[in-house]
Design a protein around this nucleic acid. Sequence first.
DNA 1: ACGTGTCATGAGAACCATTCTCAGTTGAAC
DNA 2: GTTCAACTGAGAATGGTTCTCATGACACGT
Lengths: 136, 136
Amino acid sequence: MSETPAAPARMTRQRAAVAEVLGDTDEFRSAQQLHELLRSRGDSVGLATVYRTLQALADGGEVDVLRAEDGESLYRRCARREHHHHLVCRSCGRTVEIDGPTVEAWATQVGATHGFDDIEHTIELWGTCATCRERV
Amino acid sequence: MSETPAAPARMTRQRAAVAEVLGDTDEFRSAQQLHELLRSRGDSVGLATVYRTLQALADGGEVDVLRAEDGESLYRRCARREHHHHLVCRSCGRTVEIDGPTVEAWATQVGATHGFDDIEHTIELWGTCATCRERV
DNA sequence: ACGTGTCATGAGAACCATTCTCAGTTGAAC
DNA sequence: GTTCAACTGAGAATGGTTCTCATGACACGT
């Protein structure tokens, strides 16, 4: 139930760099994209380190993770740390943070009705944003 | 908008076997599990064929696919072909089919509000079923 | 019952995102 | 400075899934 006191987390150039790209983008991005982005900026960071850092950030609730339709993991630093969902553009990754108290309640109740415990829910919305749609 | 008239789909021993195991189980199963199940029955089918068949069935709407938390794809022949969601036991795969008209409406409306098109939603519930919970 | 054309199969290679290994590097505390 | 655990990165390993391509077998017409 704790908030991951976990590892001491030493600050390094690499971690700062990853945190920075995450701070600069508003879209959900894959580890590979972030790795490439870092490389193109000159802040080259090993791919393994990118993965490790993202995982650590995700564990600490610093970034949100979701799975693209092809199974790739996408990461994003969200504005709010509280539980929420996303409306993501499937072509550019642009994201709108959503919350739906009604849906939360519904999910929990459905689980309970059927005698299931430890209910978790995955609720993500995918669509094509206005900008991408115009690009035909 | 069609229902995949698609390929002629020739009936073979392998396809019949895959369809049969799917008909016999009520839980979401991975391609690998189904492959093993077929092997243990004596109806051995190549792994590639299992994947191909499942994909074809999924394209035709015959089976539902969802992704486990680790990214693996899980398949199940659902009772209803209409759009619905699932409450799945994360330890045994036992599944309850769910529908939530409220949630559907909510999803569509949220998308529209933010100017997104072609809205799709992923809504899955995971939990531990009563039987698995008792097994400590 | 037989060809025949075409689609299906399967063993293994290829793919690819992700994780692991491990020797070398580097924060940061003393 | 020294010291040492934590961190890094290149490359190997993993594992689910897809691809390749030579071989096999439906199904239709004869």
